[in-house]
Amino acid sequence: MPKDSRLADLTAVRAPIEHAHGLPNAHYTDPDIIATETRAALETTWAALAVGADVPAPGDAKPITFLGQPLLLLRDDQNTVRVFYNVCRHRGMILVDTPRRIEGAIRCPYHSWCYAKDGRLVATPHVGGPGQNACDGIDRASLGLVEVASHIWRDVIFVNLSGDAPPFEDIHGDLLHRWAAFDQPLYHGGSDSTFTLDVATNWKLAVENYCESYHLPWVHPGLNSYSRLEDHYHIEEPGHFSGQGSYVYRQLSGVDGARFPDFKDLDAHWETGAEYIALYPNVLLGVHRDHAFAIVLEPVDTTRTREHVHLYYAAPDTDPALRAQNAAQWKEVFEEDIFVVEGMQKGRAATGFDGGRFSPAMDGPTHCFHAWIAARMEMIGD
């Protein structure tokens, strides 16, 4: 692929933070540039698609359109979560159009070709003529559903649409090691522990805002009242993830003093510590002594993002009232960010804006993400 001349300015994005520019406006507004960026940053990496809790029981299926691709999230009879292209191998008909429980086979509504939940083609009625359910040239063994490469970590389902990314564990081994203490069972809180925010912004701005704490005093005054700017530290792993940590996490307490149970065997740091990391490209993660969350960013189009928020706990049965209180508290915090990311998106229409600058003291995590996007674009453009 010849290198697009419009990508030349990205060398300034990868410069040391003291001299770097942010990504140019086109990366938030130009459909052609964003299409190239989508391949570079989302299709050829391990991008977050959904969570295992979206299909909690065997047979549960959920159709998802991701980056324009029709996908089917499915938990099979062996309790394995799989991702397939949601199209029949016969004429490309969409197989499942609404979330539902599949009791038997996946049946195409067009000509009734049927697939097992592991993707095998098991029935082709009348394919050889009336009453003839087999024929030469239709090899069922080679016409199963096309499976998309997937990996699950912390219940987040990652997909590699290009099929050629290195193994997830090889790319993200540093974060797996960093959070090894939390390699424990996670229990989704259920319907009261998930919500979706529709935001009029490019998905990257949601990442950029999440991974820094610089904005806390002005955007999150309630949170900043006890978790101040100086109570945070930067987390930067160039090429992989960035974010922030807090030294002063305060456990939620119910009206009767009830608290969530802790994850087991955590060291002293996590008594009041918490970390919030953007795992590139599009999932935002948080860990605390007693709960965790994952935010899957769905890039709907150039200027729209859906934030799918899921809360998890260390035990399967937690206090419903406390869960609802926790979800409401986090929703309030995340909603406070909406005007910021939408405002930055509107600002990208200013032709006089050159991508902005970074505070060397405060914007390291954000610059880390910009530099990763620039590096991925340069890889695609070479």
Score class of each variant (00 low, 15 high):
Ala47Pro: 06
Ala53Arg: 04
Asp337Ala: 13
Tyr226Gly: 00
Cys211Trp: 10
Leu95Met: 04
His151Tyr: 06
Pro166Met: 07
Ala375Arg: 09
Leu252Asp: 08
Val296Met: 01
Ala47Glu: 02
Gln78Ile: 01
Gly119Asn: 00
Arg306Glu: 06
Asn79Pro: 07
Ile34Trp: 04
Gly92Met: 10
Tyr210Leu: 01
His172Ile: 00
Leu67Glu: 04
His111Cys: 05
Gly189Asp: 02
Asp382Tyr: 09
Lys117Cys: 04
Asp174Gln: 11
Gly129Thr: 09
Gly364Thr: 13
Ser112Arg: 06
His220Ser: 10
His269Phe: 14
Ala180Pro: 08
Arg259Glu: 14
Ser227Ala: 15
Gly68Asn: 06
Met377Thr: 09
Phe353Leu: 13
Pro261Glu: 08
Ala278Tyr: 07
Leu161Tyr: 03
Ile102Glu: 02
Pro365Arg: 03
Leu223Ile: 07
Thr36Lys: 09
Asp262Phe: 06
Leu311Asp: 02
Val340Asn: 00
Ala53Thr: 02
Gly190Ala: 06
Gly239Arg: 00
Asp77Val: 09
Thr11His: 14
Leu176Ser: 05
Leu161Val: 09
Asp139Phe: 03
Ser191Gln: 15
Gln78Pro: 01
Leu161Lys: 04
Arg306Val: 12
Asp32Lys: 14
Pro24Trp: 03
Tyr313Gln: 04
Arg100Leu: 08
Leu197Pro: 02
Ala350Pro: 05
His90Met: 09
His370Lys: 03
Trp46Asn: 00
Leu95Val: 08
Glu212Val: 15
Gln345Met: 10
Phe263Tyr: 12
Ser191Asn: 11
Pro109Leu: 10
Gly364Ala: 15
Val333Pro: 12
Ser5Thr: 11
His288Leu: 04
Thr65His: 11
Thr80Pro: 01
Thr29Gly: 14
Arg376Gly: 05
Arg91Val: 07
Asp363Ser: 11
Leu229Phe: 08
Phe263Gly: 04
Val287Cys: 02
Pro320Cys: 04
Ile235Phe: 12
Gly243Gln: 03
Arg323Gly: 00
Ala294Glu: 03
His367Gly: 02
Phe263Asn: 03
Ala181Gln: 14
His151Val: 01
Glu230Arg: 14
Val340Tyr: 02
His215Phe: 14
Ser5Val: 07
Leu145Ile: 12
Asn25Asp: 10
Arg348Asn: 14
Cys114Leu: 06
Gly144Tyr: 06
Ile33Arg: 04
Tyr85Phe: 15
Ile373Glu: 07
Arg376Asp: 08
Asp267Gly: 07
Leu121Val: 05
Asp54Met: 01
Thr11Lys: 15
Phe84Gln: 03
Leu67Ala: 08
Gly22Glu: 00
Pro238Glu: 09
Asp290His: 03
Ser191Leu: 12
Tyr110Trp: 05
Glu336Gly: 10
Ser213Gln: 14
Ser150Cys: 05
Val87Asn: 13
Arg82Ser: 07
Ala349Thr: 12
Ala20Trp: 08
Ile171His: 01
Gly119Tyr: 01
Trp153Leu: 00
Arg75Lys: 15
Val207Leu: 09
His151Trp: 00
Ala180Met: 08
Asn202Leu: 04
Ala258Gln: 11
Asp192Ser: 14
Cys211Met: 15
Ile380Ser: 02
Asn209Met: 12
Asp139Ala: 06
Ala314Trp: 03
Asp192Gly: 06
Ala371Cys: 07
Asp60Lys: 06
Pro31His: 10
Thr29Leu: 12
Ala268Phe: 12
Arg91Gly: 11
Lys62Pro: 00
Phe260Ser: 06
Pro360Trp: 10
Met362Ser: 15
Gly163Phe: 13
Leu175Gly: 03
